[in-house]
Nucleic acid binder design. Structure first.
Length: 375
DNA sequence: CTATCCCGCCAATCG
DNA sequence: CGATTGGCGGGATAG
């Protein structure tokens, strides 16, 4: 026996339950997670409960929870339990991360290596995170070593990379090199990249970052979007002119009616933005020490049009009837999730009736892509 | 082909 | 000791 998993979800014969990979992505799971726990009075989160409700293996919950913890959305409470801190903690966490990063001085050096076509306007980033180094001293931090490699730390460092420099658009390769500290092992790097992809997916789903391709270059990179701090003024979020751009993302929904539980629901964790001091202005921070190359950020507004990303800002609330939503703050952020058929059976049970409304909404969306927001 | 990244084995850690 | 966490990388899938 051993491993009965035959890999490849598709059943040999008959249909093709091809559930596109995106339906099982961490990003979607994260959206589900957020939607599930963002409902008001949530304070404790049980891992088993989460795994069960979201229909995923335990392991995946650890991933999403670790990443969310890095931005303060949740906090480890104890074994098997986490505390829901709220999405409103993000701005604060981000700010702290930024300051912390500057404090540790993430030096953005310019190794000038990178491939030939440097990434965005040149400038390879390379910072040496402290710690590391083999050794030393009586091994007191032998166990700590593991913590240094944790997803949580990696995630925070990844964010710091964006926050502590005025560079937007960082390629994962660059990030990996920078965050690796030194090792050049291609193996280590590959692994790092894998993790970075995971993190990027999650943040993309929260639209803290967005994936874009380079203007001229070929390599894909990620641009920091910040925490919805961009209100008008140049950029994004400009709702209103959303041309009919359909983003054929997973268009396989067509069939796959194999499973009966295909509950969908809007995975939008709302924009929150409460008040607090929204960090805003993350560019340039009066830094007078790290004076690397500056990199001119070509803003050239992105291409938020297509690309999956997180799904263009769409208003969910329609009219159909979402009576629920007790605290639906804004709902103007962006709707995510297209057809998460992760296994939200339990989720459906939770919201039951809401599901109906959501389904209707989905029908519209799926019927003709999310062109314009609901009437 | 490359970019992406899911799955889950199995090693540390925590009770 | 078993249960909980969660590195890590094979290898499948998207493009």
């Amino acid at each position: 026996m051993s491993v009965s998993s035959l890999v490849s979800p598709e059943l040999e014969s008959s249909g093709r339950p091809y559930y596109s990979r995106k339906e099982k992505s961490l990003g979607l799971l994260c959206s589900n997670f957020l939607t599930l726990y963002n409902r008001d009075g949530v304070d404790a989160i049980g891992l088993d409960d989460a795994a069960s409700k979201l229909g995923v293996e335990r392991r995946r919950i650890y991933d999403v929870v670790n990443i969310l913890e890095s931005i303060g959305v949740v906090a480890r409470r104890g074994k098997n339990k986490y505390t829901w801190k709220g999405i409103g903690e993000i701005p604060r966490a981000l700010k702290e991360l930024r300051e912390e990063g500057l404090r540790e001085n993430f030096s953005i050096l310019v190794p000038a290596n990178s491939s030939r076509f440097l990434d965005d306007n040149g400038s390879g980033e390379s910072m040496n995170v402290k710690s590391d180094v083999p050794d030393n001293s009586s091994g007191s931090m032998k166990a700590d070593n593991k913590r240094e490699k944790s997803l949580l730390i990696l995630t925070q460092n990844f964010i710091k990379l964006f926050l502590c420099s005025d560079v937007n658009m960082i390629t994962l390769d660059s990030a990996a090199i920078a965050l690796l500290g030194d090792s050049n092992n291609s193996t280590a790097m590959r692994t790092k990249i894998r993790r970075l992809y995971d993190i990027a997916n999650v943040f993309s789903s929260m639209n803290l970052i967005e994936k874009i391709h380079h203007p001229e270059s070929r390599k894909p990179a990620f641009r920091w979007l910040g925490w919805e701090g961009k209100r008008y003024s140049g950029s994004a979020t400009a709702l209103g002119l959303n041309e009919t751009k359909k983003r054929v993302f997973g268009s396989d929904i067509t069939n796959n009616s194999l499973k009966r539980n295909k509950v969908d629901y809007p995975g939008d964790w709302i924009s929150d933005q409460k008040e607090n001091m929204s960090m805003h202005s993350n560019h340039d921070i009066s830094d007078n020490n790290h004076n690397m190359h500056k990199l001119k950020q070509h803003s050239k507004h992105s291409s938020k049009d297509f690309v999956f990303g997180p799904f263009t800002p769409a208003n969910i609330k329609g009219d159909s009837g979402n009576k629920n939503v007790r605290g639906l703050q804004d709902w103007e952020n962006l709707a995510s999730s297209y057809k998460p058929q992760y296994r939200n059976q339990a989720l459906g049970d939770l919201f039951g009736h809401y599901v109906e409304a959501w389904k209707s909404w989905y029908a519209e969306v799926e019927g003709k892509e999310q062109t314009q927001q609901g009437s």
